[in-house]
Structure formats: structure tokens, C-alpha cells
Design a protein around this nucleic acid. Structure first.
Lengths: 215, 215
DNA sequence: TATTTCAGTGGACATGTGTTCACCGAAACA
DNA sequence: TGTTTCGGTGAACACATGTCCACTGAAATA
């Protein structure tokens, strides 16, 4: 339980502020547990409002979960934007570096996505799947712009992108685990991540149109 | 709720039978939900015994969860054993084929592992992580036996194995989703899985001792 | 200024929960 | 045969939960 929401500003500002407080409080409680085990009353207690006030913002905890998906995905998107902007040298080293930075800065968001991706709340699972599909599509078009890959099918690009997204989420989980351990463990995780991505990249370099098939 | 447990046989046989019924009932309830949202009373209701009898078998629902991890991992192990035995031609096509068969035959086990791997129950997460680490080690030594990979570091083998385990679990989830859809969707998933594994394999073929580092 | 809108209140409800305890009856054992 | 072991019973408990309801008071609007 933390400080109450400030009581200044226009009405919709305050509403938005307690809404944000609900999302934040929920995220705090979700550090070590899952959305399915989170109760409406717990969240309101954490934020400092009465249970029924919850309904002024969300229809249910699942609904709050879907909102959390959107919020978390926004930081994920912001990450690839930063990556596209700042990475100049080796794409893999650069990408992993920004991944490390962003995961460290927004642990709860990344933890939420990885935990609830296959979690116990159907609506949230669907929301994450949809957003992740979109994310993989963007990555696929990004990959298509690389020098050696202009001749790739969009299907094949998509397959590679899916693989990379899956690998990235595994890496995220490793980073989250090694984050509250030694700095050496973190460095080791980074090394593993770079190797794994490089492995995939090497495979892509060797790809010959083996995957042709009827649609 | 299904039939009660039979009331014949020696005492420890019957005990083991209701224990198995508890595991089975839990697995049935976990088809669309997560362990964290599963209540002790629900499980006993499903099996047809009184709540307090639960404690004769498990100390808590988390404890039951850990037992489910062991059971599920047994079927996973049995899968790689079958794969090692039956696959003769192309390793990737063969492995994916047995994966498809086993996932279809033991959906609830695979769903449980993938869902609870990063789920909301700490003990279960730990148990799965431990078992999966072991699993990856075995895969690593298997990989080391392949013709072109005798010169690989055990560290590098481990990194590649971890990547493949992660990819495999992604594939498992796709299979579970496409399983209760059209046969065409299933076939498409198989195609994607084969491509992704082949991508990794190609990368491994190109690997040059880039990952040397102090231990 | 008078009226309406609406985020947050507080009490009440039926229901589900984990855990306790003394108890039963048949299998296991002496 | 007599005694012990022990998986399962059923009542009871203190508590947590989601949702209903009439309400308050200040900001928004007229």
C-alpha cells in the first residue's frame, strides 16, 4: 500500500490518475504472482480506494489485464523504436544492449507479458497473442530490408521473425531472473543471448528457398 | 465431476489411485485456467472426495503442482526416448513428427508445462526450470554426438540446446492451439516448426568458435 | 447561481475458501 | 483373534471475495 492519489486537477485528469494508479498497483502486486490469482479487492486496497470504485475504471480484473497488455506493449514498441534509432554497429550486440536496458527499466511490464502470454486468463492471452503477431510482422518487414534478404518470401520472413520473437522472450525471462543476481550472471546472460541470436542470423544467411509450398 | 475412485485392491493401491485421480482431476480443470486460480476444494469436488482428504496426499495445491511437473516431465522424457529410437531419416522432420504425436496424445501435460513455466506459483516455476535445465543438458550431449559438432565447447552446445528447447516449447504451444482447429492449420504449424528448427540447424552448421570466453 | 454529472463511499449480501478437529471403518498387522 | 494404522468423513470456524445498493460532495455545465 502506497500513497493515495493526489486530489488536484480537473475531473478527468484525476480519473485518469487513479486509473493509472490501479494499473500501477496491479503491476506491483504481479511481481511474483499471476493475474488469475489477483483479486479486485487486493488491487483497490493497494491503491487506497474502496472496492466498488474499481468498476468506474474496469469491468473486471481481466479487463484491467487487457489494459495492462496495451500499456506493456507500448513500452515494447518504444524499445524497437529506440533500437532502430540508436543501433549503428553490430545489429545483434546493439539490439541486445537496448533490450537489456529496457528490460531493466521496465521489469514489471516485461514480466507481465512473459508471464501472462500463456497464462490463465483467456482474454489477456488473446490480447497478447494479437499484439505479438503484429510485433512479429513489423520485425519481418524490418528483416526484409536487410541487404542479403531481399529475395525472401514474406512467409519465410514471418517464420524467421516468429522464431526471433520467441527467442527474444526467452532472453527477456533470463534477463529478469539474472537482474536481481550478480552483475556477472547478467553479463553471462547477455553473452548467451548474443550467441543465440547470432546462431539464428547465421542460419538465415544460409537459407535457400527450401520452404516453398502451396498456399 | 466424474466417477469415483474404485474401492478395490490393497490399501496403498487405493491410495495411489486416488492420488492419481487428484492429479488427473486437477489436470482436467487446468485445461483453460492456471494453477494459481485452482482451489483445493475444486479439485476434491472434481474427484469426488471430501476437502480434508486432500491433505492425505499433498500439503497444498502448490505441492500438487510440483507433482504434476514430475508427471509431465516423465512424458516429455518418454518423447525424446521415442524420438531417439524411431527417427532414422531426416532428424528434424522425424523429431517434429514425434513431437506432434506426443503433444496430441498428452495435451494436458504439455499445456501444463508451457503455462506454468513462467506462471504464478514459485515452487512450480522452480521445479519446471530445474527439470528443463536437465532436459537441455541431455539435448546438449545428444547434439555433441552429431558428426559435424565434435569440436563444440560444452558451453556452446548448451547455448544451442537452450535455444532449441525454447523454440520447441513455442512450437508446442502452436501445436496445442492448432490442434483443435483444422487439419490444415496443424499442417501449417508443422511446416513452420520444421523451418524454424532447420534455420537453427543451418546456423549451427556455420558456427565458428566465436563464443570463446573465460570461465 | 442552480442543476446535473459522476468518481469515490460504506454497508450489506451470499458464496467460496483453507484449515481445525474428532470420528469412522476396513485393511494391515500382531 | 485383538489391536493398530490410516484414507476418507462431516461439521464447524474465521475469513476473503465479487457485486448490489443508496449515498455524498465537488467539479462541470447551464
Amino acid at each position: 500500500m502506497t500513497n493515495m492519489v493526489e486530489t488536484v486537477g480537473t475531473r478527468q485528469e484525476r480519473k485518469q490518475r487513479t486509473r493509472a494508479a490501479l494499473l500501477d498497483g496491479a503491476l506491483r502486486l504481479l511481481a511474483e504472482r499471476s493475474l488469475a490469482s489477483l483479486s479486485l479487492r487486493e488491487v483497490t486496497r493497494e491503491v487506497g480506494i474502496v472496492p466498488t470504485a474499481f468498476y468506474r475504471h474496469f469491468a473486471s480484473v481481466s479487463d484491467l489485464g487487457v489494459a495492462l497488455v496495451e500499456e506493456s506493449m507500448r513500452t515494447l514498441r518504444q524499445m524497437i523504436r529506440e533500437s532502430r534509432r540508436t543501433v549503428t554497429g553490430d545489429a545483434i550486440e546493439g539490439s541486445v544492449a537496448t533490450l537489456v536496458r529496457q528490460v531493466h527499466a521496465h521489469q514489471s511490464h516485461f514480466r507481465f507479458i512473459t508471464r501472462e502470454r500463456y497464462g490463465g486468463v483467456a482474454d489477456v492471452r488473446r490480447a497478447i497473442a494479437t499484439e505479438l503477431r503484429l510485433f512479429a510482422s513489423e520485425l519481418a518487414t524490418d528483416l526484409g530490408r536487410f541487404p542479403g534478404m531481399a529475395d525472401w518470401t514474406s512467409d519465410d520472413l514471418r517464420i524467421a521473425a516468429d522464431l526471433m520473437v520467441g527467442a527474444m522472450l526467452s532472453i527477456v525471462m533470463s534477463l529478469l531472473e539474472s537482474d536481481h543476481q550478480s552483475a556477472q550472471a547478467q553479463q553471462e546472460t547477455v553473452h548467451v543471448a548474443e550467441c543465440q541470436l547470432r546462431l539464428i542470423a547465421l542460419g538465415m544467411g544460409q537459407w535457400r528457398g527450401k520452404s516453398t509450398r502451396q498456399t
